[in-house]
Simulated scan of single mutants.
Amino acid sequence: MFLIPDAVVRFYHRMASPPHFYTFTEQCMPWLVGVFVILVSAGLVGGLYLAPADYQQGDSYRIIYIHVPSAWMSLFIYIVMAVAGAIGLVWRIKLAEVVLVSSAPIGAAFTFIALVTGSLWGKPMWGTWWVWDARLTSELVLLFLYLGVMGLYGAMDDKRVASKAVAILALVGVVNIPIIHYSVEWWSSLHQGPTVITKTGKPAMHSSMLIPLLLMALAFKVYYVIALMQRARTELLSRERNSQWVKNKIAMGAKL
């Protein structure tokens, strides 16, 4: 039988505590910002300057260094929301609810960027800004799901009830994720196939193009963590404003 180490269990319980989470994120933030700056700088220089032009698309392909990581993040963040929603429903962990509602605006932003950059890329490649392609349409549905979570949460005054409602919506909407991912394989599509790994398991791009793309993808994930921490801290302060630990934080800030 697989046993979870006690240290992992203790860390999990500490992170589920709002005051400990708030302090932990406060300490991590400068390091995360530094890592993000390094990664995004290396990715942009490698992708926009060092990587060679594509033999078919020329320099127009370079938009993938924004488009592809944004599209990946749009799926990744929704999965995080669904998992957080399930944890919040089953174990009633307040921090899981906070992660869900705090992730929605970030995921919506990444999805919007993916759609806009995809349109900019599609115009020279397909001759049109938009087609009702399976991949594009399901990605648009994902944007509406993010907006639905945000709207539903904001429409309810009782935030604990609102958290349960958006958790259910997030879990129902997660069925759209495999549709987006496999749409280019299930249906005839103008959208190109896998960007990184082909069906044969071989890289779909030369390493000089692939490495900057992976750096940008990692940079976007670090950015998500930074933005999530910032939004989660604000949400926690709002929910816990009558708690003693929040009053102590305010008192310490007033002394400074």
Results as ranks from 00 to 15, higher is better:
F2P: 15
L3I: 13
I4F: 07
D6F: 00
F11H: 08
F11G: 01
H13T: 12
R14S: 14
M15Y: 14
M15W: 13
S17I: 04
H20I: 14
H20K: 03
Y22P: 01
Y22Q: 08
T23H: 03
F24I: 00
Q27V: 14
Q27W: 09
L32I: 07
V33I: 15
V35K: 02
F36N: 07
F36D: 02
V37P: 01
G47W: 05
Y49C: 00
A51Q: 11
Y55H: 13
R62P: 11
I63H: 01
I66Y: 03
H67M: 06
M73Y: 08
V80S: 05
V83Y: 04
G85Q: 02
A86N: 00
G88R: 09
R92K: 15
R92Y: 06
K94T: 12
K94N: 07
L95K: 10
A96S: 15
L100E: 04
P105T: 08
G107V: 07
A108L: 06
T111F: 06
L115E: 06
G118I: 02
W129M: 07
W132S: 09
W132I: 08
D133Q: 11
R135N: 12
L136C: 11
V141S: 02
L143A: 11
F144Q: 09
F144D: 07
F144S: 13
F144C: 12
F144K: 07
Y146I: 10
L147M: 10
G148H: 07
A162V: 05
S163I: 00
A165E: 12
V166P: 03
A170N: 02
G173H: 08
V175S: 08
N176W: 03
I177M: 13
I177K: 05
I177Y: 08
E185Y: 12
S189C: 12
L190P: 03
H191E: 06
Q192A: 13
G193S: 14
P194D: 02
G201S: 03
A204V: 06
M205F: 12
H206T: 09
S207M: 13
S207W: 14
M209Y: 07
L210H: 10
P212V: 08
A217V: 10
A217N: 11
V222Q: 00
Y223H: 03
Y223R: 02
A227Q: 14
R233L: 00
E235K: 09
L237E: 13
L237Q: 09
R239C: 02
R241C: 10
N242D: 15
K249W: 03
G253E: 11
K255N: 02
K255R: 13
